[in-house]
Design a binder for these strands. Structure first.
Lengths: 204, 204
DNA sequence: GCACTTACTGAACAGTGTTTATTATATTTG
DNA sequence: CAAATATAATAAACACTGTTCAGTAAGTGC
């Protein structure tokens, strides 16, 4: 049975090869500019071969999408030992902001791009995303229990905080902050300052 | 000189024809699915003709982009008689939210889509966008002067508010609010509730 | 050696934005 | 009026895109 085993391994290897090439090209030039033919050229196979391993282009980018969430969740776990829930909330915000600014293409794919996930998403595998949101929800709930932030429904509050940071980031990534131009101030700094202001308003 | 005049009028008419067709198709099927050939078919001209009136596809959608801002600003002017600045701020938020939900394609083009405006934008014509932001900035400044909301730099505060509402909307439009699912609650309602919570945190 | 399976690919399909050489028409000039 | 010129529109092509399918070549099992 070892031949069949090897064949299966080989198949997975080639799948991995495609993903790695796709990830590399994606991070270099973004989703739209990464074509199936680009990937095929890179791994020195024909474009048609790729369709033996993935049903469509979107399916490739769904695994990159998942990689992004794994990366983000990894960063979240790290700084989760902070005892004070409000401080932890602030840290979550900083981590999220930092992740977006250092991985803008991942962020775009994860949160901004028109979802190519229509079917797959419903197909139960939206876990990683839910996971990230749980982190936020837990900390927010704790903050609310201890009356550290303005009272409200935990889900609404969590959604509010997420929306706020996402709004900052997505306006920045998609270059809509031209109107907001404080002289000599870098935009990323503005984002951090805004987050601070928001946390101040949240505090009870 | 009347012949030359008529020709100029005709030329503008055909330009208008393209824009109207493009707008119609855009609102029916969005930017990406509206092709130059679609527009050409619709107005019964050849695709190449369109390039006599517009340098590129993006240039057509830049005028639709402007139309969107005109629409938004029109809605803003209307409800600008409210005396109390905080109430006016709340109303601005509601109008913005309502605009986005009733014109999701316009909103997408104006605030979410990867900017096709790179050159044109710098080309001085970002006025409409700045205009909208001025509305917000003015009201925020008044709120701050009267100490109705948490103190901060007017620009930072305005950016915060804009980011917040934009975050809500763009997560909704791009279908990222699956994780946030309160039973029996429609998402648009959640957005309105969130906005209320946010305004509560802002209030001093 | 022969049949069968698997892996791969060239070529095509239908679409995209955009350019260019050509044609047909309208206007101006001799 | 006829010839020259300017204008407007287009067919066809270019270089791409995602995707499919018939056909080929090699590896495996009998």
């Amino acid at each position: 049975m070892s031949i069949k085993d090897r064949k299966e391994r080989d198949k997975l290897d080639r799948r991995k090869l495609i993903i790695e090439s796709a990830t590399k090209l994606f991070l270099e030039q973004g989703y739209e500019k990464t074509s199936i033919r680009n990937i095929a050229d890179d791994i020195e196979y024909s474009p048609a071969t790729i369709y033996l391993y993935f049903k469509e282009k979107d399916e490739i980018f769904y695994v990159i999408h998942e990689q992004g969430f794994d990366l983000l969740n990894k960063e979240f776990i790290h700084h989760n030992q902070i005892k004070d829930p409000f401080e932890r909330l602030a840290e979550l915000g900083k981590i999220y902001l930092n992740f977006a600014l250092t991985n803008p293409d991942y962020y775009d794919l994860m949160f901004i791009m028109r979802a190519p996930l229509s079917e797959i998403k419903c197909h139960s595998k939206w876990e990683a995303g839910d996971n990230s949101f749980q982190y936020l929800l837990n900390t927010v709930t704790e903050c609310l229990d201890r009356k550290l932030i303005v009272a409200g429904d935990p889900l609404i509050v969590s959604m509010s905080i997420w929306s706020y940071v996402h709004g900052l980031i997505s306006l920045f990534i998609r270059e809509r902050l031209q109107s907001v131009n404080i002289e000599g101030e870098q935009n990323p700094n503005l984002l951090a300052q805004s987050l601070e202001y928001f946390l101040k308003t949240l505090k009870v």
